[in-house]
Amino acid sequence: MGAASTVQPAKSCGPDTVAASELPVTGIAIHYPQGHVVPMHQHQHGHLIYASQGLLRVEAETGQWLVPPTSAVWLRPEVAHRLIVPVALQAHGLFIRKDICANLPTTDCVVQVSGLLRETITELTCVDYTTPLSRRTHLLSELLLEELNTPPALPFHLPWPQDAQIQNVCHQLMGDPSHQATAGDWASTLAIGEKTFHRRFVKSTGMTFGKWRQQLRLMSSLTQLMQGAPITQVALNSGYDSHSAYTTAFKKQFGHAPSEFIQRQLVMQ
Rank of each mutant, 00 (worst) to 15 (best):
R57K: 09
Q224G: 06
E147G: 05
A19M: 07
M40K: 00
I121C: 07
S71W: 04
P15V: 10
I49K: 01
V58C: 09
P105E: 06
F250M: 03
A183T: 02
P33F: 04
T125L: 05
A164T: 13
T248A: 12
F95P: 00
A191K: 15
G115A: 13
D16C: 12
P105A: 10
A29G: 12
A72Q: 11
S12P: 10
L222D: 01
E59N: 05
A153F: 11
A249V: 06
Q253L: 10
L173C: 07
H41Y: 03
P86T: 12
A80W: 08
C13N: 14
W65H: 02
L143K: 15
A181Q: 14
K195A: 12
P15F: 04
R213V: 08
T6R: 12
V18S: 01
P161H: 02
I166Q: 07
F254V: 06
A257R: 03
T130Q: 15
T223M: 08
L145M: 13
D16Q: 13
H256I: 01
H138E: 15
Q44V: 13
T122W: 09
R76I: 06
A245N: 06
E147D: 07
S141T: 10
G14N: 12
V58W: 02
P39K: 01
T62I: 14
W212S: 00
V67R: 05
P152K: 14
P9I: 07
W212A: 05
H31D: 10
Q64C: 14
M219V: 13
Q224S: 05
L94F: 06
D99C: 04
E22M: 10
P161M: 01
G54K: 04
V67L: 05
V25Q: 07
K252F: 07
H256Y: 12
L55N: 00
V169D: 01
S178N: 11
S244P: 01
G184W: 11
E146Y: 14
E147L: 15
P151N: 04
L216F: 04
A4M: 12
A187T: 04
L222Q: 04
G184V: 06
V202N: 08
R57G: 00
P177G: 05
W74E: 00
A51W: 02
R264L: 12
D185W: 10
I84F: 11
Q64T: 12
K211P: 00
I28G: 07
L116K: 14
N149L: 08
L75Q: 02
V58K: 01
H41Q: 11
P177H: 10
G54L: 00
Q8N: 09
H92F: 06
M268K: 09
L23M: 12
P69W: 03
F261I: 02
I100T: 05
H256N: 02
T205G: 08
Q227G: 02
L216R: 02
V85L: 06
N168G: 11
L148S: 05
V25I: 10
Q233R: 03
T189A: 12
E260S: 09
H198A: 12
M174I: 04
R264Q: 14
R76C: 08
V79E: 06
D241P: 00
Q269H: 02
Q8Y: 11
S259E: 13
F156G: 00
F201D: 07
E147C: 07
Q8I: 15
T70K: 08
V87G: 03
G228D: 03
Q215G: 02
P177S: 07
L173N: 02
G206C: 11
P68S: 14
L222K: 00
I28D: 01
P86M: 11
R97Q: 09
R264P: 00
P132Q: 09
